[in-house]
Design a protein around this nucleic acid. Structure first.
Lengths: 243, 243
DNA sequence: TTATAATAACTTGTATACAAGTATACTCGT
DNA sequence: ACGAGTATACTTGTATACAAGTTATTATAA
């Protein structure tokens, strides 16, 4: 195979993962980044050969990706669905839907513990910026939202989060790498918005929450543009490689 | 094994399903019905022996159930989580969350086709009542909500539905069997409420929608209000975004 | 009798083998 | 040259085998 052997997904995050999970994470990144184009048909046997594992973990991986709506398991082969601008918007719809629901629960309970946790994560994010560690920043960003969601202890909301998290994670990873390399200044804006989010939870103020969401939309738009750009870049790079 | 060999899940619904899916459906029913108690530890090998299949489909089934939050995959064995009253409420939270979101989209598009489909399903439900077919009624009930959700063509909302549907289906199945044998009179009330739901979609009237939701889930009334508020917040945020 | 070491019986994850089915390609008759 | 039927090379789903690790049990020594 002539493909690049570099992994898009941070290898150190996979220390305790099974082969199936590793393949799923890597394939997910390749699909979301556009490296594997929408419409591609994935073969279990070819993937098994490519990743030097048997079909069993490949099957596991494909099942996972199918449940995340990244591929469609058909009679013959798995068809890559991929992520278009529409899908990105839809993922954020879901995140907003969940987080607004969570907020309504949070205003009814003691949020001291969560706020403390969130502040800790925020400080970690600042350290990640300081050391220009995009992956670490992305991980903390995901953890930030996960912490909020888990705070209300709602098993089926958590379930939805678990199902959307991997895609969110990959997306944020790619987006943050882009920000760290090209739009470094945006990071402080992102941090500011997280601060606002914490403030909303702390004061249980819906207006601030809305404000935070509003700013988040801007971030989303930015991320969409970025992803689009990165995909364009990638496909251009591929074209040149083929020549 | 001394267990009863009858299947709780309608066998005829499994005509085209794989062994893994069959086992998943049956185990799901047994867990939700309480036949398999919460806390039970399921062994892949024992299940394989019990259902006369190999470990492969059993593993598939356990993965499915784990993604539905019915079991927890641990180092040694799968621990049954089960469904308590809390979980039931939470599943309905999710359904309400999704369906209110969907409704907000539906009011913006042409709903002629959906309404027609829903009316068809409603007539099917009446036939099911006439022939005292609880399983058929349950299937149509699930289909009713699926039809509404699919109408907005939102891949990640559909994803959430796909992940919650199996549990909903099992739950409604058990619930309807109970209604048909013990609370037969309730059925007309259920049908009435579905009519109201269609009316809400047809006229795109939020008040009727709220009324329908309240009637359907009058025991979780407080939560409906929360949901509605979070929806309002969301749409406000969107409106502002557009300006 | 009790603590500890060793073994036996489990567990999971992965690899491999095989049957049944489906699309592609190829050959043969016209 | 071209269409019908057969052969071939794929596919999936299931079964089985095996390695590595965990838990429970048993046996032995103090």
């Amino acid at each position: 195979m002539s493909e690049s052997k570099e992994f898009l997904y941070p290898v150190k995050w996979l220390s305790k993962a099974s082969a199936g999970d590793r393949v799923a994470c890597e394939l997910r990144m390749r699909i979301i980044s556009g490296l594997i184009e929408s419409g591609t048909i994935l073969s279990e046997n070819k993937l098994a050969a490519e990743y030097n594992v048997s079909r069993s973990p490949i099957r596991d991986a494909l099942k996972i990706l199918a449940s995340e709506n990244l591929i469609r398991l058909e009679r013959m082969g798995a068809v890559v669905i991929g992520i278009t601008e529409k899908e990105v918007e839809e993922i954020y719809d879901v995140r907003l839907l969940i987080e607004t629901f969570v907020f309504e629960r949070l205003v009814k309970i003691d949020t001291f513990g969560v706020v403390k946790e969130l502040n800790k994560i925020l400080e970690m994010m600042l350290i990640a910026i300081k050391y220009k560690d995009a992956d670490e920043f992305a991980q903390q960003d995901v953890l930030f939202h996960e912490t909020i969601i888990r705070a209300i202890d709602h098993s089926y909301i958590t379930m939805i989060w678990n199902n959307t998290k991997p895609v969110m994670e990959s997306f944020i990873l790619l987006s943050m790498r882009m920000h760290f390399s090209q739009k470094y200044d945006d990071l402080s804006r992102i941090v500011k918005n997280h601060e606002l989010y914490i403030e909303a939870i702390k004061t249980k103020n819906r207006d601030i929450m809305i404000q935070s969401l509003h700013q988040n939309f801007d971030d989303v738009q930015g991320k969409v543009d970025d992803l689009w750009m990165s995909q364009q870049m990638l496909s251009k790079a591929r074209e040149q490689e083929k020549e």
